[in-house]
């Protein structure tokens, strides 16, 4: 693993060394993902492809929630609420303003694929930003509340968001929101996944971003080290919500239909379970758990009625036997390794 790791670090050093390196890395990433996009959408059968897309969206959700729950130690069980805001906001944008925007883009020479891509990027950002604003709102109680209380407030916020959307007629209310253009493809899902993993990793592994984990471990000590704990808690919520919003936007533009039933607290629990299963504070764990928990239900389809029983029993057994999650320790690429490394000190004086 260390050979691969060294190679990766060399690549990264090149990519961050200069603007040229950065642009090259971006270009290569985009090129690879575009090729994959073309290849996979043609090679895979629609059913497998659909699962792949949902895996990607769940990765974005799980990794972003891990920033809040795993790295910063705040307990949010309202992630589906942020996802809903992003999904509906982006859908409203592309459905209501999309045609006009596309016409405007075409007028300045950005027709066809480029125009829709631009529109979709704007919609993704719009969804993300609106969700981030909600994250700010939810983050504020986190300054005062801990643990269980915060959990129930985030859950409450999530439910309030859902009920409000249910009452907004222009978002379809109880009928749901149909007719969303299908802009989500493999490229955008994968690109969002790469971005969220990189952003969260860059945040938590830097000395500056150590503050997230300091807040989780010991708020008093963190403040004594000069960390503005308030700022970091709110920041975790805002960034986490932003990506949940993006995930929601991807979700809506993939299913081309949104209903508030997709965003109940069961969805929030699902994301929490991914984070917990993967290991709180392990990015790679969240990624793997998101994939596992997206595929597993499909495999268990034949025993549909036992599926959720199995799930919940799994969660309890996991907590009783391995509360740090499956991948809580020793993971490649330095993405995890954070949670429980209880080795004996060998060279201790």
């Amino acid at each position: 693993m260390s050979g691969a790791r060294r190679a990766w670090m060399a690549v990264e050093r090149f990519a961050t060394a200069s603007l040229v390196g950065r642009l090259a890395a971006l270009a290569v990433t985009i090129a690879v993902l575009v090729v994959l996009d073309r290849a996979l959408s043609r090679l895979l059968n629609p059913y497998v492809f659909r699962i792949l897309m949902l895996c990607g969206i769940n990765i974005v959700l799980a990794v972003s929630l891990n920033l809040i729950n795993g790295f910063t130690g705040q307990f949010s069980i309202g992630h589906a609420g942020f996802m809903a805001i992003g999904g509906y906001a982006a859908a409203a944008m592309t459905t209501y303003w999309g045609p006009a925007a596309l016409k405007a883009f075409a007028a300045v020479g950005l027709a066809g694929g480029i125009g829709t891509s631009m529109l979709f990027v704007l919609a993704l950002l719009f969804g993300g930003l609106l969700a981030a604003a909600a994250g700010l709102l939810v983050g504020i109680p986190s300054l005062r509340l801990r643990g269980d209380y915060l959990a129930i407030v985030t859950l409450g916020f999530g439910e309030i968001i859902r009920v409000v959307i249910l009452n907004l007629d222009f978002l379809g209310g109880a009928r749901g929101f149909p007719g969303i253009p299908r802009y989500t493809n493999f490229f955008w899902v994968a690109f969002s996944g790469v971005v969220v993993v990189l952003v969260v990793r860059n945040l938590v592994s830097s000395a500056y971003g150590l503050a997230f984990r300091m807040v989780r471990d010991d708020e008093t000590a963190a403040a004594a080290m000069g960390v503005d704990t308030t700022r970091f808690k709110v920041m975790a919520f805002v960034i986490g919500a932003f990506f949940a919003g993006i995930a929601g936007a991807l979700f809506g533009h993939y299913l081309i239909y949104l209903h508030t039933n997709s965003f109940t607290f069961m969805k929030s629990f699902e994301i929490v379970i991914m984070v917990v299963l993967g290991g709180m504070g392990s990015i790679i764990g969240s990624v793997i758990a998101a994939i596992l928990l997206t595929i597993l239900p499909e495999l268990l389809r034949s025993v549909q009625q036992y599926r959720m029983v199995f799930y919940s029993a799994l969660l309890i057994v996991l907590m009783l036997t391995r509360p740090q999650g499956l991948f809580g320790s020793g993971t490649p690429f330095g993405l995890g390794r954070l949670w429980s490394k209880r080795r004996e000190v060998r060279r201790a004086a």
Partner: peptide
């Protein structure tokens, strides 16, 4: 701190 408060996961 009186009761050592190191960051336990770091």
């Amino acid at each position: 701190f009186q009761n050592i408060r190191l960051f336990s996961s770091l």
